[in-house]
Simulated assay, not measured.
Amino acid sequence: MIIEGFQKPDFRTGSLGRFAVQINPETFVRNYAIEYVDKNAPGKEGSQVEYNYSQPQTMDVEFILDGTGVLPPDGFPAGNPVSAAVKLDVKQKIEELKTVVYNYVGEKHEPPYVQLTWGTEIFKCRLQSLNVTYKIFKPDGTPLRASVKCAFKEHIPDQENAAVTEASSPDLTHVRLVKEGESLPLMCYQIYGDEKLYLEVAMANGLTNFRELQTGQALFFPPLANTAK
């Protein structure tokens, strides 16, 4: 599992580094919740519920940091002879984790925006809580093992949220995420019915090279009336 921190909510700007979990968790918990409003009729038992909104997802992750030498440190596969000679500095790793998920950053002095990546699972979020339990110590009190519990709350950037909830009319503002193999002219044709509008869209997004789109990149497509000449 890789945990990355960013200063900006686009999850690309102001990288704070990457934290690689020493040993991947056996499980993680992803929570989904829906908020309803009770519609109680006077004089009647029971209730009717009306959908209000879907709450942001949350994810709970727990993992171990071990500096006794029993587990291999970051960067060394199990069984590598170097693993026996290199031991993890648990306190240092906790500080590295806090830099990525907890410490205040930026002009607003607020915690980072965090992206969790585990295989094909990607979760964009912010830290809700961090709990560290130290378990084994050297004679001088230096911790050799820690159990780390993190709770994260989903954070969807405005552009991505608009891309999910947008209507399909070309007269409305669109935000689309670039899919693999898509080009700007193709996306313009899909939205406006005219691939020749790609230059105007490139200017609206400040693109210097419209041929170098990245998969997952969010692009702003202005209303057709404001784009067409």
Rank of each mutant, 00 (worst) to 15 (best):
residue 140 D to R: 12
residue 110 E to Q: 07
residue 116 L to K: 00
residue 108 K to N: 09
residue 109 H to Y: 07
residue 105 V to H: 03
residue 149 K to H: 13
residue 134 Y to V: 04
residue 125 C to K: 02
residue 130 L to V: 03
residue 148 V to M: 05
residue 144 L to Q: 14
residue 132 V to M: 09
residue 106 G to E: 00
residue 110 E to H: 02
residue 125 C to E: 03
residue 112 P to Y: 01
residue 112 P to F: 00
residue 126 R to L: 02
residue 115 Q to P: 02
residue 113 Y to A: 01
residue 143 P to K: 07
residue 148 V to D: 03
residue 119 G to W: 04
residue 144 L to G: 13
residue 111 P to L: 01
residue 123 F to Q: 05
residue 134 Y to T: 07
residue 122 I to A: 12
residue 128 Q to T: 02
residue 132 V to A: 14
residue 110 E to F: 04
residue 110 E to S: 03
residue 124 K to D: 14
residue 123 F to G: 07
residue 112 P to C: 00
residue 149 K to A: 15
residue 121 E to Y: 15
residue 111 P to R: 02
residue 132 V to I: 14
residue 112 P to I: 00
residue 140 D to K: 12
residue 110 E to A: 11
residue 128 Q to A: 03
residue 106 G to P: 01
residue 113 Y to N: 00
residue 128 Q to E: 06
residue 120 T to E: 15
residue 136 I to W: 07
residue 119 G to S: 05
residue 124 K to W: 07
residue 117 T to V: 13
residue 117 T to K: 13
residue 107 E to S: 09
residue 145 R to I: 06
residue 145 R to E: 10
residue 113 Y to H: 01
residue 110 E to I: 04
residue 118 W to Y: 10
residue 112 P to N: 00
residue 133 T to C: 05
residue 148 V to K: 05
residue 141 G to D: 10
residue 140 D to L: 09
residue 144 L to P: 11
residue 126 R to V: 01
residue 108 K to V: 04
residue 138 K to Q: 14
residue 143 P to N: 10
residue 142 T to A: 12
residue 115 Q to W: 03
residue 138 K to C: 06
residue 141 G to S: 12
residue 144 L to S: 10
residue 128 Q to D: 06
residue 143 P to M: 08
residue 132 V to C: 13
residue 149 K to L: 06
residue 128 Q to S: 09
